[in-house]
Design a protein around this nucleic acid. Structure first.
Length: 492
RNA sequence: GGCGCGUUCGUCUAGCGGCCUAGGACGCCGCCCUCUCAAGGCGGAGAUCACGGGUUCAAAUCCCGUACGCGCCA
């Protein structure tokens, strides 16, 4: 029997989209694309204290940026406003919605009636007290209220209670995991989890089970950190007589030190990588390669190729460390595939933030000139700034090149040569400056480098003659004169 | 502490009993190209496949144990 695959990504809006969350979303998305299923987005906002509308917006924004568009879930309208009820046949797509909360209450009540769950009046204090009394061996809930007599229950009357799931204590629960294979857990170790808090709200594990069932989820693909919760969830599915979905637990992403990736390691959210100047396709491609590969160890995937080659078999069980170096290399690869026009469009937000004015017509040929050198979108304003504003001289560069014996004389001598040029073009400039070096019996570098640093302020940059052409005669000569005064001790 | 998961070059990985004197990619090193910086081309170093036992004619690949790491619960 071939049922239609339905997967979901279910973030809690308590922070921006973490890079690990982005990968979980990506793998769900890829899974749906590859096996012809639906990818659902569900917001798990049961944490009333920490969930905020702003973080919902951020998460949706990051997902959209990465191109991980959902088939069902919250909707974002033209003006950017978010509707959490969303569109699709299984909504609302967030757990705080009244309709959803009614479901959780109804199903908790059902378990209560069927004797598969029970009311628990234990307070935190009582729990702590009994745990202390039981000694260090004691673990989890002691089942106090599960054993309560009818009279005792009546005696509790209207006092607030939580609802606990009555976990079976015999046998074992097997989790069917498409990545790890079958994993088995002893039931005696499973806790009688609270499914409804004293406040009336559902707990994470319960809401998750109810929603996964109601939304027809066939494969639950999530992080390895949930593997240990899974047998409890499986038990709940079974208590309702619901079909248990298949699971797929993805390994974690670690920082370079092997510890869980966090802000401590630098950028940890998708939004940060966007701001650093990474392309969405880079982040997508790189994240896919963390824990997945095809048999050819292919590195770069063209548009649409990833979702075609993706397969469950290629998913790695072990955790992966996040390698910033490789990400940077990959971004360079993707940047080089872009046309100057595309690069300009992508770089716009960064150019507009830069401290200079530019026009598209002026900057386009410069982007072309430097095309192969960018690793980040932020490199575009960084490498091109001196074409549009005054030179900022790099101290190392001026020390190394301009503050040298004989440099002033060379620059002084080249000035009239450049001033006398009536054809200010790249080939003509090259011909003239080379001829100058030959005539003066100087090595090419002896002439090229001082000019380069004088006009750009640094040793690295675009091809010299192209740069001179774009700068124009007046600015070149003015900058050479200025540099001589400032660094070569030339008379003012 | 209990349970669970994991372990191939520094890093991401290929490998699913003989093709492995372990392949690719990032990074690193060298050379070439060259007006700098990149990019590109070529080459190199780098993994006793965590360790110890089995099974087998043959194991990175199968089984068992140990160690270490991580996760969940407490």
């Amino acid at each position: 029997m071939s049922e239609t695959i339905r997967v979901r990504f279910a973030p809690s809006p308590t922070g921006s989209l973490h890079i690990g969350g982005a990968r979980t979303a990506l793998f769900n998305w890829l899974f749906a694309k590859r096996y012809g299923g639906s990818y659902i987005l569900r917001i798990e906002d049961t944490d009333e204290v920490r969930s905020t509308p702003e973080t919902v917006d951020q998460i949706l924004d990051s997902l959209s940026w990465l191109g991980l568009n959902w088939d069902e879930g919250p909707t974002v309208s033209e003006d950017g406003s978010v509707d959490l009820i969303g569109s699709g046949d299984f909504g609302p797509y967030h757990q705080m919605a009244p309709e959803r909360r009614e479901h959780y209450e109804k199903f908790a009540e059902q378990l209560l009636e069927e004797g598969k769950a029970y009311r628990c009046w234990c307070t935190m204090e009582e729990l702590a007290l009994r745990r202390a009394a039981a000694g260090p061996e004691a673990r989890g809930y002691d089942g106090f209220c599960r054993k309560l007599s009818d009279d005792a229950i009546k005696a509790n009357g209207e006092k607030p209670y939580s609802i606990r799931f009555a976990m079976p204590k015999e046998g074992a629960t097997s989790v069917e995991d498409v990545i790890h294979g079958n994993v088995s857990f002893e039931n005696s170790l499973l806790q009688d989890l609270v499914i409804q808090k004293t406040t009336g709200g559902p707990t994470y594990n319960f809401a998750c089970v109810v929603d996964d069932h109601l939304m027809g989820i066939t494969h639950v693909i999530r992080g390895d950190d949930h593997l240990s919760n899974t047998p409890s969830q499986v038990q709940m599915f079974q208590a309702f007589g619901w079909k248990v979905p298949k699971f797929g637990h993805l390994s974690m992403i670690h920082g370079p030190d092997g510890k869980k990736l966090s802000k401590r390691h630098g950028a940890a959210s998708a939004a940060e990588y966007r701001e650093l100047g990474y392309l969405p396709e880079t982040v997508r491609n790189y994240l896919a390669l963390l824990g997945w590969s095809n048999s050819q160890s292919q590195q770069i995937f063209a548009e649409g190729e990833l979702e075609k080659s993706f397969s469950i078999e290629g998913i790695q069980k072990s955790p992966a460390r996040f390698d910033q170096e490789k990400l940077l290399w990959m971004n360079g690869e993707y940047l080089r595939k872009k046309t100057p026009e595309q690069l300009l469009a992508f770089a716009k937000p960064f150019l507009d933030k830069a401290d200079f004015e530019y026009t598209d017509e002026a900057i386009l040929p410069l982007i072309l000139m430097e095309h192969d050198k960018f690793h980040l979108l932020t490199d575009i304003p960084k490498r091109l700034d001196f074409f549009f504003r005054d030179v900022e001289y790099d101290e190392k560069s001026t020390n190394k090149v301009l503050k040298k014996e004989g440099v002033d004389a060379i620059l002084e001598a080249i000035e009239p040569v450049l001033a006398g040029l009536n054809e200010w073009t790249e080939p003509k400039l090259e011909e003239t400056i080379r001829a100058f070096a030959v005539e003066k019996d100087l090595k090419m570098g002896k002439v090229f480098h001082p000019i380069r640093v004088s006009v750009s302020g640094r040793t690295d940059g675009p091809t010299l003659f192209g740069m001179l052409e774009f700068l124009g005669k007046d600015r070149v000569i003015a900058r050479i004169q200025d540099a001589r005064k400032r660094f070569c001790g030339a008379a003012a």
